[in-house]
């Protein structure tokens, strides 16, 4: 039986507009309650999946504390991005809790989490391609009612190339520059924690190094960073804490250095 609200495979662009359409983010309430103690941000014992689909995460725990960079690595399809999205409230949590700064935010919608101080850079479609760089940053600051010009100046200091291209459409920029816009957009809310989903996907090694430098620079300003990375070795080198996920569950956890030194991890995930 087909979905009564589905499109029956119709893809007629003269009547329907598939571009930029939203995905199915579950609707949630807006109630959070105090839950003191523990790390600054933690997804604790998360079991989650999309819609009515099967569980993708199984009792998975991810956390990051103040002044830290935490990195999630693992093979393809291990649920790295899914874990990140679960922390951000973008899929159905069946078990477990998410806590931020002493508050249980499991029931909050992603928008409400942004208001609580979480910044999120998705892996794809993470900029407004038809808008200028400056407009992208302005949209990042949409929930702010105060004057955000100094934050914008800080972002331009961090990514000087963006200042030069501020009136260009973001979609016309190179891959690395687009990622800078994406990170800059997320920084505009002055987040208390920044979550990056594969920020270096599809950029050249040189650009990748530069992006990592920038990310370290952001971390030095005191913002904890939780990030998913495909380039496990480099990511673990800069990480204070590392999570290796396999099939949606924690396989190894430790500091970046520990994981890099662990022979099991080296053999299985770092190519020897």
């Amino acid at each position: 039986m087909s979905d009564p609200y589905g499109d029956r495979g119709n893809k007629d662009i003269s009547i329907t507009n598939p571009k930029g359409m939203g995905s199915e983010i579950p609707t949630r309430g807006d109630t959070s309650f105090p839950s003191p103690g523990g790390p600054f941000l933690i997804g604790d014992g998360m079991t989650a999946g999309y819609g009515n689909g099967p569980d993708i995460l199984h009792d998975c725990t991810i956390a990051v504390d103040k002044g830290e960079i935490a990195v999630i690595v693992g093979p393809n399809g291990a649920g790295k991005s899914t874990g990140m999205k679960a922390v951000f409230g973008m899929l159905d949590m069946r078990k477990g809790h998410v806590r931020l700064d002493g508050e249980d935010i499991t029931d909050l919608s992603p928008q409400a989490r942004v208001a609580k101080g979480m910044g999120f850079v998705p892996q794809t479609s993470n900029i407004f391609t038809s808008m200028t760089v400056e407009e992208n940053l302005e949209m990042g600051a949409f929930i702010r009612t105060d004057d955000f010009s100094d934050t914008m100046a800080q972002v331009y200091d961090l990514f000087p190339i963006l200042k030069d291209k501020r009136y260009q459409a973001a979609g016309e920029l190179s891959g690395g520059q687009r990622q800078q816009v994406a990170v800059g957009r997320a920084l505009m809310t002055k987040p208390k924690v920044l979550m990056l989903d594969e920020p270096t996907a599809g950029v050249s090694p040189i650009v990748m190094d530069e992006l990592f430098d920038r990310i370290i620079e952001v971390a030095r300003t005191g913002i904890p960073i939780l990030m998913v990375e495909q380039n496990a070795r480099q990511a673990l080198e800069i990480a204070d804490k590392g999570y290796v996920l396999v099939q949606g569950a924690n396989a190894y956890t430790g500091t970046g250095k520990e994981l890099l030194a662990d022979p099991e991890v080296r053999k299985s995930f770092l190519g020897g």
Binding site: G20, M21, G22, S23, I25, P110, Q111, V114, A115, F120, P122, S125, N126, I127, F128, T129, S130, M131, E135, E138, M139, G140, F142, I143, R185, T189
Partner: peptide, 24 residues
């Protein structure tokens, strides 16, 4: 205007607009 730009943002990328706190 802010409202006008939020419309363009929503049209361009609904999910990201949502994450930016734009009320659909």
């Amino acid at each position: 205007t802010r409202a006008g730009k939020s419309m363009r943002a929503y049209s361009d990328n609904e999910d990201l607009a949502l994450l930016s706190g734009i009320n659909p």
